[in-house]
Design a protein around this nucleic acid. Sequence first.
DNA 1: TTAAGGTGTGACTGGTCAGTAACATAGTCG
DNA 2: CGACTATGTTACTGACCAGTCACACCTTAA
Lengths: 217, 217
Amino acid sequence: MAAPGAASAAASPAPVPPPRARILAVARELFYHRGIHGIGVDAIADAAGTNKMTLYRHFASKDELVAACLRQLAAEIDAEWDAIAAAHPGDPNGELTAWLQHIGQWFIRESGRGCALANAAVELPDQDHPARQVIREHKSSVRERLARLCRDAGLRDPEAVASQVFLLCEGARVAAQGLGSDEPLARLPALFKDLVEEHTPPGAASRGKRHHRSRRI
Amino acid sequence: MAAPGAASAAASPAPVPPPRARILAVARELFYHRGIHGIGVDAIADAAGTNKMTLYRHFASKDELVAACLRQLAAEIDAEWDAIAAAHPGDPNGELTAWLQHIGQWFIRESGRGCALANAAVELPDQDHPARQVIREHKSSVRERLARLCRDAGLRDPEAVASQVFLLCEGARVAAQGLGSDEPLARLPALFKDLVEEHTPPGAASRGKRHHRSRRI
DNA sequence: TTAAGGTGTGACTGGTCAGTAACATAGTCG
DNA sequence: CGACTATGTTACTGACCAGTCACACCTTAA
């Protein structure tokens, strides 16, 4: 209606994203909060302000839509980590603690329904489901990146630290639901901090701050 | 067929459990391995060697069946813990380590689809679902029991240990799926052992075995 | 103006599933 | 024997849902 002719090149600030993006965004929300089996494609299309037919023109099936949602989420998580890494060039120790801080804060903020990737794995037992490959790839990539970071940070027994952090994260994700209390979640950042200090050799990139056995968690 | 008359009082060693028990057992299996939404009541009744009508005579609805399955599982877990406690009377430290060992071994054995209670929480987002109450009660009871045990065992900062163990367990449960590798799981028992030693004050119920900072995980 | 491509609309199919009704059967107890 | 109770059988309803078809619309580009 406004500017009918010149709205083609690079003028409008995109007030309405194209249908595909809207569908993806809405589907992620609904899958996450109501469960993959708890929402139908019709309701998704409706909530996205479009219709089922357009949805099926962009996604071959509901299963493919689920996989696309998880792919987008995984890409966002990777991007966040990249940003953190870019903020700490040549400082694996700083990157590690920043990332742990980031994750810990995330849980406190978002303690609602855990990790969408882990939830999807529960809801889709079939290992051949297109979403399962996305989940497997992302989880192992995170774990590998974490282990490498621990190694580069010069931690003692980096594999053990990575395993423990990984399990704590997964636990926090699932503990967020099921258990009502936020108490274990709230301890996460301190837990991470302690874990790293615990495995930091006395002279590794530290500012002379020795770690001692009696610490508060 | 054999002993037609005298098979009434207390003779037969119960070669076939009553329908309700069969339904419950089969439902637990199928809900666990194929997901709550992935199996229908008809298939459950069929696999239990009975039919849908009998199922509905014993359980008001599918939702109630789910809740009954989880209640039974929770009771079994409590009973296992009770047995461990009974084997270590007046020795909270022994009970704690025995339980941690028990859990750690469980994960290594059963690393398939995680914890049925946690999975159900993911599959049933509605907090008013009858199964959710079972889940909430059991999880908080486990956490409380664990915290009390850590306190009785004289550990330093028992709440922190309980939180960490709890999160590690939850993490292990969910990490079993999604991630293909068993590596973090395999570390669990050692992780627990270390965690307890780490928080054991020098003179608490120990046989003079001092814990030192450099340990392998 | 015309052609084309992405989009909206409604109806429809085929299938699954939870839950119910009506009736038949078998074992149990008086 | 007769009554009762638990179970088996079949068929059915009503709802939901994934996926498709045919057709109308509307914007953009040639």
